[in-house]
Amino acid sequence: MSSTPTFTLNNVRKVYSNGTTALHDLNLTINDGQFVSLLGPSGCGKSTVLRLVAGLGKMSSGQLIWGSNARNKLAFVFQEAALMPWATVEDNVRLPLKLAGMSKAASDAAVAEAIAMVDLTGFESCYPRELSGGMKMRVSIARALVTKPEVLLMDEPFGALDEMTRSRLNSDLLDLWQQKQWTVVFVTHNIYEAVYLSNRVIVMAARPGRVVADVAIEAPYPRTEEFRTSPLFNQYCREISACLSRAANHHKEPFSESPSPRANMVDSVA
């Protein structure tokens, strides 16, 4: 795994106009090719982090430092598929290229490739109303991939799906990540999903949000269904659950030692 930073957030603070402090002195570095999950209590600023990185909001103070030209090759997958109901799968996927001024003829190959990557070949002419929830999310992912990104920001994209569909999309996403070697930052509330997907899990404290633990998931890829039921998987889930419990109750007791040598707890959270 590369040690070259894709981007670094230094002492980032975000205060909304109503006075709510969403982030306070948040520090985080994401390296090229990593799959990093952000995990924490509701309202801890996970989605805010993604939006700041994507340029969809302004930080109140601090710095976002890009390590390469990856900032120009960034794609965002939101919680909701947000497809145009009047447009076919093909036209929904084509939208970013159309907005960039690319002609249909010039974009046909990229659209077909993106649809194939999410296993929707044959559904190009279907409308969103004809698709399942999982298929709609695949269209949303294809729409992000059609721009050939290097950085993929994903804001809890599978949260509304049933467990079977979610599990299948987790595996499909990992396969694509290994093929394309993207840098992925993935927001989730699901510990099991975070451990299965990631090589790092970042735990954030309740508002104001900041990083309180950085857990390396030292399990090889590709990850199979056997990994989900392994002792190592269960151990990581327990460790991260302990980190989350401490993050949610940070105002009751200060952070001290890590629950595990692999879990790097950040001390400046009292």
Rank of each mutant, 00 (worst) to 15 (best):
residue 128 P to K: 03
residue 111 V to W: 12
residue 132 S to Y: 06
residue 132 S to W: 06
residue 120 L to P: 03
residue 100 A to D: 11
residue 133 G to S: 01
residue 107 S to F: 02
residue 112 A to R: 07
residue 115 I to P: 09
residue 127 Y to Q: 01
residue 129 R to L: 06
residue 114 A to R: 05
residue 133 G to M: 02
residue 107 S to N: 02
residue 115 I to G: 09
residue 121 T to P: 00
residue 109 A to Y: 08
residue 113 E to Y: 12
residue 120 L to N: 03
residue 131 L to K: 00
residue 111 V to P: 12
residue 124 E to M: 11
residue 111 V to R: 15
residue 111 V to E: 13
residue 112 A to T: 13
residue 127 Y to I: 02
residue 113 E to R: 15
residue 123 F to Q: 06
residue 105 A to R: 12
residue 121 T to M: 00
residue 118 V to D: 14
residue 119 D to V: 09
residue 101 G to E: 04
residue 115 I to A: 09
residue 108 D to Y: 04
residue 113 E to S: 14
residue 111 V to T: 11
residue 124 E to H: 10
residue 103 S to W: 06
residue 122 G to Q: 10
residue 108 D to A: 12
residue 133 G to W: 02
residue 130 E to H: 04
residue 131 L to W: 00
residue 107 S to W: 00
residue 128 P to W: 04
residue 128 P to N: 08
residue 119 D to Q: 15
residue 116 A to Q: 15
residue 114 A to W: 09
residue 111 V to G: 14
residue 118 V to P: 10
residue 123 F to D: 06
residue 129 R to N: 11
residue 103 S to R: 05
residue 125 S to A: 12
residue 131 L to E: 04
residue 131 L to T: 02
residue 113 E to G: 07
residue 129 R to D: 10
residue 129 R to M: 07
residue 110 A to E: 08
residue 110 A to H: 04
residue 121 T to D: 03
residue 121 T to K: 01
residue 123 F to E: 05
residue 116 A to E: 14
residue 109 A to I: 06
residue 102 M to F: 13
residue 116 A to C: 13
residue 118 V to S: 15
residue 131 L to P: 03
residue 124 E to C: 13
residue 117 M to Q: 15
residue 115 I to M: 11
residue 131 L to Q: 01
residue 122 G to S: 05
residue 111 V to D: 15
residue 132 S to I: 08
residue 107 S to I: 00
residue 125 S to H: 12
residue 102 M to A: 13
residue 123 F to C: 07
residue 113 E to L: 14
residue 109 A to M: 06
residue 116 A to T: 15
residue 133 G to I: 02
residue 110 A to V: 02
residue 109 A to T: 13
residue 125 S to F: 07
residue 119 D to C: 11
residue 123 F to V: 03
residue 132 S to G: 12
residue 107 S to A: 09
residue 122 G to T: 08
residue 107 S to P: 01
residue 106 A to K: 12
residue 127 Y to P: 01
residue 109 A to D: 10
residue 100 A to Q: 11
residue 130 E to C: 01
residue 132 S to C: 13
residue 101 G to R: 02
residue 116 A to W: 08
residue 118 V to I: 15
residue 122 G to P: 06
residue 102 M to K: 15
residue 132 S to M: 08
residue 102 M to P: 09
residue 132 S to A: 07
residue 117 M to W: 07
residue 104 K to H: 02
residue 113 E to N: 14
residue 112 A to M: 05
residue 117 M to A: 15
residue 108 D to P: 00
residue 119 D to H: 13
residue 129 R to K: 09
residue 109 A to W: 03
residue 131 L to C: 03
residue 132 S to D: 11
residue 102 M to Y: 14
residue 108 D to C: 07
residue 120 L to V: 04
residue 108 D to S: 12
residue 105 A to M: 12
residue 124 E to L: 10
residue 121 T to Y: 00
residue 107 S to Y: 03
residue 106 A to R: 05
residue 113 E to V: 08
residue 113 E to D: 15
residue 108 D to G: 05
residue 125 S to G: 11
residue 110 A to Y: 00
residue 119 D to P: 05
residue 115 I to D: 07
residue 133 G to F: 05
residue 122 G to M: 10
residue 129 R to Y: 04
residue 125 S to P: 00
residue 104 K to P: 01
residue 132 S to L: 08
residue 117 M to D: 15
residue 118 V to T: 14
residue 122 G to E: 07
residue 109 A to R: 09
